[in-house]
Design a binder for these strands. Structure first.
Lengths: 162, 162
DNA sequence: TAAATATAGTTTCAATAGAAACTACTCTTG
DNA sequence: CAAGAGTAGTTTCTATTGAAACTATATTTA
C-alpha cells in the first residue's frame, strides 16, 4: 500500500462538473430498488429455508407447479422468470426430494410433463399460508390504497421497461 | 422417465384446502418485486457493461467512492449494502483498473483509506449522467406524484422490515 | 504490560448461476 | 421421405458469490 504522503487522492483532481458532486447513491432509484428487493426476498427465503432448507429456485418452481400442475419445463420457464438451465435444475432437485413426477409429453418427445407428487403438494400446502403471512407482514405497514398503488406502479414500470 | 399410464400426477391427491388452489404466483408480492428488480437492475447493468465491462460490485463501489471519497472498506460496506468480501474484491478490481488508490489509515493499522484516482473520477463522471438517464427512463412513465409516492412507500417497506 | 479477546480486511473453499456445448427429437423443404 | 435446420431440455464448463478460516492489528483485562 502506498503511504499517505505519496498520494493525494482525488481532491487535487480537476473538477469534473456538478454531475459527479451531486450523485448520491442513497437517492439513486436502482439502489433503492435493490435494498427493497433484498429485504423482501430475505423474508421469503427465511420461510423456505427454515421449513425445508430449499433453494430459491426450488421454491419458485414449487410455487408455480403447486397450483398450475402438469407443465412442461418450457412453460415453467415462461411463468417463473427463471432461465431454462435453472428450471432444469429446479425440476431435478425437487424430483430428487420426491416432490415432483414427470410423464412423457405425447405432443413432443423432447419434452415432458411435470406434476407435483402428494409429498410435493403437502410441502406446498404447508408453505403457502406461511408465505401469505410473510406477504401480509411486509404490506402491513401500508394501508389498502398505498398497497394497491404500489403494486400498480411497480407493474407499470415493468411494462414500460420491456 | 415414467410413462403416462403409470403416473397419475396430483390430480388424484386429496384436496389440501383452498389455500393452495388460490395461490397465484403472479399476484404474489415478492414475485412481483423480483420481476421489478430484475428489470431495473438490467437497465443499469447495460450501462456499466457497455461502457467499461464492469461487474455489478465494481459499479456499486465506484458509485459511492466517486462522490464520498476517502472511505475505509468498512465504511464502504456500510454504505453499499454489500458484504465485506464483496467490497474487498470490488476495491481490488477497481484498483487493478487504476481507478482507486489506497493510503494507510493512521487511526487503524488493519484498515486503509480508499480514494478514486483521476482515472476513476473520469469513469465516474462519464457514468453518472448515463445512469441519471437510465433512472429518468425508468421513471418517465410516472408522473411526479407517482414517482414520489412510490419511493416513499418503498422506503417505508424497507424501514418496517428491519 | 503481557495475555486474551475482538476486529478489519483478505483469502480460501464450496456452492450457485449462467453461457455454451451437447443430445435427442421435431419440423421444414427439396 | 431424406437431409438440413431448428428446438426442448440437460450437461459441462467457467465465473461469481458468500461462509468460514486466516492474518494482522487493536483493545481489553488480569
Amino acid at each position: 500500500m502506498e503511504n499517505s504522503k505519496d498520494i493525494k487522492g482525488c481532491l487535487d483532481v480537476p473538477d469534473q462538473g456538478d454531475a459527479t458532486k451531486t450523485f448520491e447513491i442513497s437517492a439513486f432509484f436502482p439502489y433503492q430498488t435493490r435494498v427493497f428487493y433484498k429485504s423482501v426476498s430475505e423474508a421469503v427465503a427465511k420461510v423456505y429455508i427454515d421449513e425445508y432448507d430449499m433453494k430459491p429456485y426450488e421454491w419458485r418452481a414449487l410455487a408455480i407447479l403447486g397450483k398450475s400442475n402438469m407443465l412442461t419445463p418450457a412453460q415453467l420457464v415462461e411463468e417463473s422468470s427463471m432461465d431454462k438451465v435453472t428450471v432444469s435444475r429446479a425440476i431435478a432437485s425437487l424430483s430428487k426430494r420426491g416432490w415432483l413426477r414427470s410423464r412423457s409429453n405425447k405432443m413432443d418427445g423432447r419434452s415432458r410433463i411435470v406434476s407435483t407428487s402428494a409429498e410435493g403438494q403437502k410441502a406446498f400446502a404447508n408453505l403457502v399460508p406461511k408465505m401469505r403471512a410473510v406477504e401480509h407482514g411486509i404490506l402491513r405497514c401500508l394501508d389498502d390504497h398505498e398497497a394497491a398503488e404500489f403494486k400498480r406502479i411497480m407493474q407499470k414500470i415493468v411494462d414500460h421497461q420491456g
